[in-house]
Amino acid sequence: MKLFLEKMADIVETVGDFALMVFKSFRYMVTHFRTGDTLIQMDRIGVGSIPIVFLASIFAGLDMALQFEVVMAPYGARALLGKVVTTSIIRDMGPVLASLVMLARVTAGISSELGMMNATQQIDALRVMGVDPLDRLVAPRIFAGIVMMPILSISGDFLALLAGMGISTAIGHVPAPLFWSGVRDALTAQNLTNAFLKPVFFGFILTAIGCFYGIRSSGGAYGVGRSVTKAVVAAAIWILVANFLLSKLLINVWGLS
């Protein structure tokens, strides 16, 4: 019982610390926005992730179109391929895939970088020089994640649809205009809200969790390694949980269309 209570107290403390870090970071984004640092992070988090996100999106689009073509062809429903592939990609597959691909690069990168800064007393040095690490290190990263993730995810969705159209035309013999007509049908307000809103939350999760574990890391190289593992696992789980919750929320708001 005592162990259980201690564990619960730990969890409450961790959640409290995380909430405080996020609150202060957002406050810094409003009161003391660092343009230079934020642009550097947008370049590292966003521009640096373009190749891997785009590659993953293209193969996801190819695979989804292929699988749906196999399932739908016997029912003579190939004409709906564009709509089905688009709906799957922009509502769920695109944002989740882009986030999970970026997880390894962004969350692991941030937590290891901040963890090493902690281990080598660079974060203490910032505090000593009268600079809050949340202002200098955390706020620019979270802002960059929130801004760049939707841009990457939506660009990746577009490439996935192009790849899906390629496969549908080449293997399913679906004319490209028919495929694009399905794509247009699927670009509803609800689907577009999914496509934009989910990556905003995922970008926040990827960066905030990376920062949180990095800045709390202790114990040298071993401690940094442990923080990176914790950050990656936590971010992966929270992306999947947030995806479900957002899907449910948006279905409740928009209905089942």
Binding site: M117, T120, Q121, Q122, D124, A125, R127, V128, M129, G130, V131, D132
Partner: peptide, 28 residues
Amino acid sequence: LLYRQRIGMVFQEGALFDSLTVGENVGF
């Protein structure tokens, strides 16, 4: 934060910011 601005601290290994040049560290 204001109080710490009156204090100069030299850490054990220097704790220089490795993403900045020497000049940027000193001018930080």
